[in-house]
């Protein structure tokens, strides 16, 4: 089982890492981080914080793009190119296939995160604005967020086309960052329909705003262990649930 899952994961990793989309996105992220220097005249003495904030935001944004763009077609492409026939005719269980694809993509994201973060720290050192290690906490939270988002991308990819999948995954990302507003909307809206939809979205869609600790780390606000542990646990449970649903859907599919 481990062999088969790791085989599929390694294959997914190799395919993605040799794909131009990934390299382009990573290069672009580094360019954006480097160009944060340009806004220095506008920063009025807050440049160090702005450079860090832009850098961390760029890492998150581009990893989210990788997750949505690569993840959105990860299963679909196997079906479209009919490589799935070869994979599923081997003694591979369908859930192993989904988990393998997911872990392969997560490996891609971890590598991307590491490369971007390394570039980020190099830029911080070159610009001489200080490179404290606690900024890494924000990167770790981005990883948790990506774990959920990638599972959602794999879920959509297991039954829809890449464009539909990408649009829906992006919608989940977008709404997931407005969870608090949704709850508020549900509380104050007079319309029962709006109430129902808002509550449903609030409870079913992932609460991704919890993973954004960039303001805290940039401004040096101290964070307790629960600020990391709870989101980590949440990400684990949410991811496992979404992968379980993906497997259930994929199990019923005919090719």
């Amino acid at each position: 089982m481990i062999d088969r899952i790791s085989g599929i994961a390694l294959n997914t990793f190799r395919e993605s890492i040799r794909d131009k989309v990934l390299v382009t996105l990573i290069v672009f992220a580094v360019v954006v981080m480097g160009s944060s220097r340009v806004i220095q005249p506008l920063a009025l003495g807050e440049e160090a914080k702005i450079i860090k904030d832009i850098g961390l935001s760029a890492i998150t944004l581009f990893c989210v793009l990788i997750s949505i763009l690569v993840g959105g077609r990860i299963v679909y492409r196997e079906v479209e190119k009919r490589t799935i026939y070869i994979m599923l005719a081997k003694p591979v269980r369908r859930w192993e296939f989904i988990v393998g694809k997911y872990l392969g993509l997560m490996t891609v994201l971890v590598v991307s995160l590491v490369v971007m973060t390394a570039a980020f720290y190099v830029i911080l050192l070159v610009l001489g604005v200080g490179a404290p290690l606690y900024l890494l906490l924000a990167v770790l939270m981005t990883l948790f967020e990506l774990a959920i988002l990638t599972a959602v991308a794999v879920l959509f990819s297991s039954f829809s086309t890449p464009i539909t999948g990408a649009v829906f995954t992006f919608a989940v990302y977008f709404v997931g960052h407005m969870s608090r507003d949704l709850k508020l909307l549900a509380a104050i809206s007079p319309s029962p329909v709006v109430k129902a939809v808002s509550y449903f979205s609030y409870y079913v869609l992932p609460n991704l705003a919890n993973f954004n600790i960039r303001p805290e780390v940039v401004y040096g606000v101290p964070l307790g262990p629960s600020a990391l542990l709870l989101p980590g646990l949440y990400a684990l449970v949410y991811t496992a649930t979404v992968l379980l649903i993906s497997t259930a859907i994929f199990n019923r599919r005919e090719f």
Binding site: R14, E15, R18, D19, K81, R82, T83, Y85, I86
Partner: peptide, 11 residues
Amino acid sequence: FLPESPYFYDH
């Protein structure tokens, strides 16, 4: 199993 007009992983 060899499927019809097999296609593999490009990369």
